[in-house]
Simulated scan of single mutants.
Amino acid sequence: MAKELTGKHVLLIFVVAFGTIIAVNLTLAFNAVSTFPGLEVKNSYVASQHFDERKAAQEALGWIVAGTHEAGQLRLTITGADGAPVEVAELQATLGRATHVADDLEPNLVFDGTAYVARLDIDDGNWNIRMKATAQDGTEFVQRVILDVIR
């Protein structure tokens, strides 16, 4: 014999169902906010004012950048429009996960005549190299290089 569905039962079903939904949403929101790496720039409007100029100068260099990680070695290759390796005046690079900054590191990249290399052991997965290089003529080159590490 089935029990009768009363108002208390319906209220309990309603509270449990929506309570679960709200708890899951709050948990996901908290985790998203706590792992967010932060702002790219302090004021996006100000940064946008010279975007086209910086983009044109960067594209005029004709650089192609690629990153690889094999056998414990991080390799950042910068080639010019002529296909030759480029040695920059200054290079800053941060290697980190795409979703959080907890694993960020700044590898000591050294130019070996063909690419910038650093001995580095990292876990498998999706990594980003956030690089800022200065060309010999002073032109700033900023790029995020995606690095998929699979062993």
Score class of each variant (00 low, 15 high):
Gly80Pro: 05
Glu53Arg: 14
Gly80Glu: 07
Ser48Leu: 10
Phe36Ser: 15
Val46Cys: 10
Val46Pro: 02
Ile78Arg: 01
Lys42Glu: 09
Asp82Trp: 01
Lys42Ser: 12
Val41Lys: 10
Thr68Ala: 11
Thr68Asn: 02
Ser48Glu: 11
Val65Glu: 02
Gly80Asn: 14
Asp52Val: 11
Leu61Ile: 00
Arg75His: 05
Gln49Pro: 02
Arg75Glu: 05
Leu39Tyr: 04
Arg75Trp: 06
Ala47Ser: 14
Phe51Lys: 09
Gln58Arg: 15
Ile64Lys: 12
Asp52Ala: 15
Gly72Ala: 06
Val33Tyr: 10
Gln49Met: 15
Val33Cys: 08
Ala66Ile: 00
Thr68Gln: 03
Leu76Ile: 07
Arg75Thr: 11
Ala47Ile: 05
Gln49Ile: 14
Glu40Asn: 14
Ile78Asn: 01
Tyr45Asn: 14
Ala56Ile: 12
Phe51His: 05
Ile78Lys: 03
Lys55Asn: 01
Phe51Thr: 11
Phe36Glu: 09
Asn43Cys: 10
Asp52Met: 15
Gly38Asn: 05
Ile78Ser: 00
Gln73His: 03
Gly80Cys: 10
Asn43Ile: 03
Ala60Asn: 13
Gly72His: 04
Leu61Ala: 00
Ala60Pro: 13
Glu70Lys: 11
Gln73Gly: 09
Leu39Gly: 05
Ala66Glu: 05
Leu61Met: 04
Trp63Val: 02
Gly38Cys: 08
Ser34Leu: 01
Ile64Tyr: 04
Val46Ser: 13
Gly72Met: 05
Glu70Gly: 07
Ser48Asp: 12
Ala57Trp: 00
Ala81Phe: 03
Ala81Ile: 03
Gln73Lys: 14
Ile64Ala: 09
Ile64His: 09
Gln58Asn: 12
Ala81Met: 09
Trp63Ile: 01
Asp82Arg: 02
Gln58His: 08
Gly72Lys: 08
Thr79Ala: 03
Thr77Gln: 06
Gln73Thr: 08
Gly67Met: 00
Gln49Tyr: 08
Ala57Asp: 05
Gln58Glu: 11
Gly67Phe: 01
